[in-house]
């Protein structure tokens, strides 16, 4: 009972009066006949991190590109601080596209300074910021080398530097962690946290769900171009918390739960070698049906544990995709 009250409170906590920084309303993007993004609405508050999750082709990159005007929306609107996003706003944003790309022959420091200036920094400020960014990303020894002579991981650090050196209020990073070694992942994660602490709003996508879980204030899950779920991690977990159960009955027959109504087994981690999963997770589709499930489990004579499930983001994601 007390748990329910506290959960209710958590869900209905009064929202602090922050106006959304980035707001995407009913975004539609079509490529010919294909709807790449349909009716996606998202908001990103100032100084928060939104993790963008979804299988390949779900529309994450397209949504991000729409923020930068790289695709033309068929419908919907995008605004920043309550004003429609236009060239003047985009110039202040920072963007790290999925397809990395910089000038291969240009030296690292020159490259950063150039992009700083394109984003409106004055010459001296851009030079200073380039030096500071290079230090921060730990690539000082490459400052005067052409980009193409750096390893791919270090090129990616430069790409990150290009996106954040002008201290953008909005930072959009498409798969910033892909292809990084563990050291690179830590540098990238550290940079994201620093940017958030500085006050930047960050939208980033990743398939590494533990990272999303660790770094995001809110998570949005995109499936086939539509928003499947959105909220804080707690909210996502709480969404089905009363309906998720994990049952451990080693040695029970595979189909012990067959015939229990309003209960759906959830896709699980790969079964052990003998083919019988030790723990099974279920989604109860009607309140109270869990009792029937418990009785069925008891009847097997193998029941070890029957408990509410607290899924990780990876589990929530897998269940949604399944």
């Amino acid at each position: 009972m007390w748990a329910r009250v506290s959960r209710w409170c958590a869900r209905h906590r009064p929202v602090p009066p922050v106006s959304p920084a980035l707001s995407i309303d009913h975004l539609d993007v079509r490529f010919g006949e294909v709807a790449a993004v349909s009716d996606v609405s998202l908001r990103l508050d100032e100084g928060t991190v939104l993790g963008f999750v979804g299988p390949n082709g779900a529309g994450k990159t397209t949504t991000m590109r729409a923020v930068f005007g790289l695709v033309e929306p068929a419908g919907g609107s995008l605004s920043w601080a309550d004003a429609p996003i236009g060239p003047a706003q985009r110039r202040t944003f920072g963007y790290m596209p999925e397809e990395r790309g910089l000038y291969a022959k240009m030296r690292v420091h020159d490259q950063l300074r150039y992009f700083g200036r394109l984003h409106g920094m004055r010459s001296a400020d851009a030079a200073r910021a380039a030096t500071a960014t290079i230090e921060r990303l730990d690539i000082e020894q490459y400052a005067d080398r052409p980009l193409s002579t750096l390893s791919l991981g270090n090129q990616q650090r430069v790409q990150l530097g290009v996106s954040l050196m002008h201290r953008p209020p909005l930072l959009v990073l498409d798969e910033p962690f892909s292809g990084l070694d563990p050291m690179g992942v830590e540098v990238m994660a550290g940079a994201l946290a620093e940017e958030r602490d500085r006050g930047a709003s960050i939208l980033f996508s990743s398939h590494q769900l533990e990272l999303v879980e660790r770094l995001s204030d809110r998570v949005a899950i995109l499936l086939r171009g539509s928003l499947a779920a959105e909220g804080t991690l707690e909210q996502l977990r709480a969404r089905d918390a009363e309906r998720r159960f994990v049952v451990e009955a080693p040695g029970a027959p595979d189909d012990w739960w067959h015939g229990v109504e309003h209960v759906r087994p959830l896709q699980d981690a790969p079964a052990p070698a003998d083919g019988r999963p030790v723990a099974r997770r279920f989604l109860v589709e009607r309140p109270g049906a869990e009792r029937a499930l418990l009785q069925a489990a008891e009847r097997t004579g193998h029941l070890v544990a029957f408990a509410p499930d607290r899924p990780s983001l990876a589990r929530i994601f897998r269940d949604l995709v399944a």
Partner: peptide, 17 residues
């Protein structure tokens, strides 16, 4: 072509017309 092939346009276009 260099700017298109290297996809640096994706980073350029938000900042330059």
């Amino acid at each position: 072509v260099e700017e298109k092939a290297s996809r640096v346009v994706e980073v350029l276009l938000p900042a330059v017309h």
